[in-house]
Every structure is written in structure tokens, then in C-alpha cells.
């Protein structure tokens, strides 16, 4: 089997997942549950990508279709639109949750939701300035 780029990336992801899981079992961390979850998640993504890479190697037609799709300008446009919508929807949901939590007296959660809004808006402003210089 010829090892393509996705095959190599997925192997690296699986190895990172295993390393994170091993770290959780060493007892060095107080809350290993978070590490186990993250490690398993990374491993799952790696395995899924490995299966995809294997299918691509076995089926050149599928490989060609996936490669075309990854370069397709309409897919890139749709992806950008989806991210734009997800960003706007997240801000609205976080704002509603922030207000609801504050009114219910859960100040900690409300502050977190409010801070996530501030962070996203700040990131947007910074990235806008950087990209405005580039384009």
C-alpha cells in the first residue's frame, strides 16, 4: 500500500491519542477523565481517517473524487458560509445563555458564556485586521 498524506496524518493522530491516554493512566494528572476523553477522541478521528485513507488507496476513483472535492471552489464557498452561520448562531445562543444564567443566579456559567462571546468577537476583529492587510 502506497502511504499517502492522509495515511501518515492518521497514524500521527492515533499515536497522539495513545500517548494522551497513557498519560491519563500514569496518575500524574489529578483528573484523568478529561485526558482519557480527549485521547480517545483524537484516536477515533485518526482511526476514521485511516479507514478513509485505506479506502482511497483501494479505490482510485474514490480517491480522485475526494481530491477533487477538497479543491472544489463551491465546496470551499459552502464551507465558508457554514462557518459564518455557525459563528453567528453560536454568538446568539451564548448571549441568550449568558443572560439566562445571570438571571438565574448562576454567575460563573453566565460569565463564562459572556467571556466566550467577547473572545470570539475579539478574535474576529483581530483576524479581520490581519486578513485586510493580506488581501
Amino acid at each position: 500500500m502506497k502511504h499517502n498524506k492522509w495515511f501518515k496524518i492518521s497514524v500521527v493522530e492515533i499515536l497522539i491519542g495513545i500517548a494522551v491516554n497513557l498519560l491519563a493512566f500514569t496518575g500524574l494528572v489529578k483528573d484523568p477523565g478529561v485526558l482519557t476523553g480527549a485521547g480517545s477522541g483524537i484516536m477515533a478521528v485518526g482511526v476514521a481517517q485511516l479507514l478513509k485513507a485505506a479506502r482511497m488507496e483501494a479505490n482510485p476513483e474514490l480517491k480522485k473524487r475526494i481530491e477533487t472535492a477538497s479543491k472544489d471552489e463551491r465546496y470551499a464557498f459552502i464551507s465558508m458560509k457554514a462557518k459564518e452561520a455557525a459563528f453567528a448562531i453560536y454568538l446568539m445562543i451564548a448571549a441568550v445563555l449568558c443572560l439566562a444564567w445571570m438571571l438565574m443566579g448562576n454567575r460563573e456559567a453566565g460569565t463564562l458564556a459572556g467571556m466566550s462571546i467577547c473572545l470570539l468577537v475579539l478574535l474576529y476583529a483581530v483576524l479581520f485586521r490581519i486578513l485586510a492587510r493580506k488581501y
Binding site: R65, T68, A69, K71, D72, E73, R74, Y75, F77
Partner: peptide, 26 residues
């Protein structure tokens, strides 16, 4: 046509239906 342009068949279909406007390059 899609293969010659390096895009998916769905992109050609969307262009023909007027649902998607191409980039200047395409």
C-alpha cells in the same frame, strides 16, 4: 466538463442552475 475544470459535477450543475456564481478563475 467537471473533470476538465477540476471541480465536482455538482459544481457544474449548480452553475448551470444559476444557484452558484463561479470565481473569476473558474
Amino acid at each position: 466538463l467537471a473533470e476538465a475544470m477540476g471541480v465536482s459535477r455538482q459544481t457544474i450543475s449548480s452553475l448551470e442552475n444559476g444557484r452558484y456564481n463561479p470565481s473569476v478563475i473558474l
